[in-house]
């Protein structure tokens, strides 16, 4: 099946791992609530809308666990 924007989707290098398996990626809900002050006062780190997003400690960005980059560093490696 070919999706619209399929070309965009192919931008991810085939060899790049996803953030969810990267040692730089931090997405524990409690950590995010502690890091983003007052997040829990009107939302939650445990909410569905957050999906599995987290912080890339290497690049200091907040992104989906399904993202990835060429600097992926597999957990335990």
């Amino acid at each position: 099946m070919r999706w619209p924007f399929g070309q965009v989707a192919r931008k991810t290098p085939a060899t790049a791992g996803q953030c969810r398996t990267c040692a730089h990626f931090d997405n524990a809900p409690a950590t995010l609530e502690a890091e983003f002050g007052n997040l829990a006062s009107m939302s939650s780190g445990f909410a569905s809308v957050r999906a599995e997003d987290g912080i890339c400690r290497a690049r200091n960005i907040y992104l989906s666990s399904r993202a990835g980059c060429t600097s992926h560093h597999a957990v335990g490696v």
Binding site: M42, S43, A47, R50, D53, L63, S64
Partner: peptide, 12 residues
């Protein structure tokens, strides 16, 4: 806040 956090993740 929920929308802000969702969109922040979506747009990196």
């Amino acid at each position: 806040v929920s929308a802000a956090i969702a969109i922040a993740g979506a747009v990196r």
